[in-house]
């Protein structure tokens, strides 16, 4: 009995391994094709569409990347091909990192209030917040633009950052996690005469940091990859105010002819690299974090 169980487990492991291997390969192949494609000359796509890699050594080219990085200096006669990629990278970091950190502070303070400061209607207010998640964001796109203008942050990076501060999701996620912290700990600290701020900083934050970390990464990815809102806010700002994702989208739009496939793939890959690095570094943390909270974006 035991033995057959064990053997059964082994068999199912092998089956699982094979299926997962297959799925992973299918999931990764398009990304790899895009990566290799960004190093292929455009005629190689015509002549050898069946080839996964550049079909021969002469079809291998750095042209796409060379073009992207050759226009980082402003030349007034070629203003339309001014791609200050390093500025864009810097702006993206400011927007994604700065915005996320501030939101985390705001959201975790709110989550603390919902969980540990029992006030009237706390639950009802919270349910109301969750309900607002069902409202399509498109309703408030134009009004939000008017709002940003009233606040005077139109055409600035601030206009990309602050709308996210009203987000419900992060509060929801962090609150769920704080709920898991034993209340005794908080009560004990209260009896010892600790102020709420102290409890928040010394007890709750250290215990809830993984949830905050996860929400931080979600926020970071969302802000980093955003193109639609960026176009509305900074689309007509000077190029040095653009973010990486938006700038590369503009370059990709300019690649209208099929011949520009190398450049457009190269710009797609460039847009993917920073977020990939973040993912590599934080991969295990994200997955463990999500696994623990059971929350995703």
């Amino acid at each position: 009995m035991q033995r057959s169980l064990k053997r059964g487990k082994k068999v199912s492991k092998v089956v699982a391994f094979v299926i997962l291997l297959l799925v992973s390969v299918i999931f990764l192949l398009p990304l790899l094709w895009g990566l290799f494609g960004s190093f292929r000359s455009h005629d190689d796509f015509y002549l050898h569409p069946e080839s996964f890699f550049p079909s021969n050594i002469s079809a291998f080219t750095f042209d796409g990347y060379a073009e992207l990085f050759s226009k980082t200096e402003y030349v007034s006669s070629e203003a339309n091909e001014y791609y200050p990629i390093w500025n864009w990278l810097f702006n993206s970091v400011i927007v994604a990192f700065g915005g996320t950190v501030i939101y985390l502070i705001i959201a975790s303070l709110a989550a603390y209030a919902f969980v540990f400061l029992d006030f009237k209607y706390a639950n009802k207010i919270f349910y109301f917040l969750i309900c607002t998640m069902t409202i399509p964001g498109i309703i408030s796109t134009t009004p939000q633009l008017i709002n940003m203008n009233l606040l005077g942050v139109y055409k600035t990076l601030l206009g990309l950052i602050i709308p996210s501060f009203g987000g419900v999701y992060g509060v929801f996620l962090i609150k769920q996690f704080f709920t898991g912290i034993p209340k005794d700990l908080i009560e004990n600290a209260r009896i010892d005469g600790a102020s709420n701020l102290k409890i928040f900083l010394k007890v709750v934050l250290p215990l809830g940091k993984s949830a905050i970390f996860v929400e931080g990464l979600f926020g970071f990815m969302g802000a980093w990859n955003d193109v639609q809102w960026a176009q509305l806010i900074i689309g007509n700002a000077p190029r040095t105010t653009w973010t990486l994702a938006y700038g590369l989208k503009v370059i990709s739009d300019q690649c209208e002819s099929y011949e520009a496939i190398t450049l457009s793939l190269a710009s797609a890959i460039i847009a993917m690299i920073p977020i990939f690095i973040v993912y590599l570094v934080a991969q295990s943390k994200i997955i463990e974090g999500v696994a623990n909270t059971g929350i995703k974006r």
Binding site: L31, G34, V227, A245, S252, A271
Partner: peptide, 9 residues
């Protein structure tokens, strides 16, 4: 990854 990149691929 950004949808614009993966969609292009």
């Amino acid at each position: 990854f950004p949808l614009t990149s993966t969609g292009l691929i």
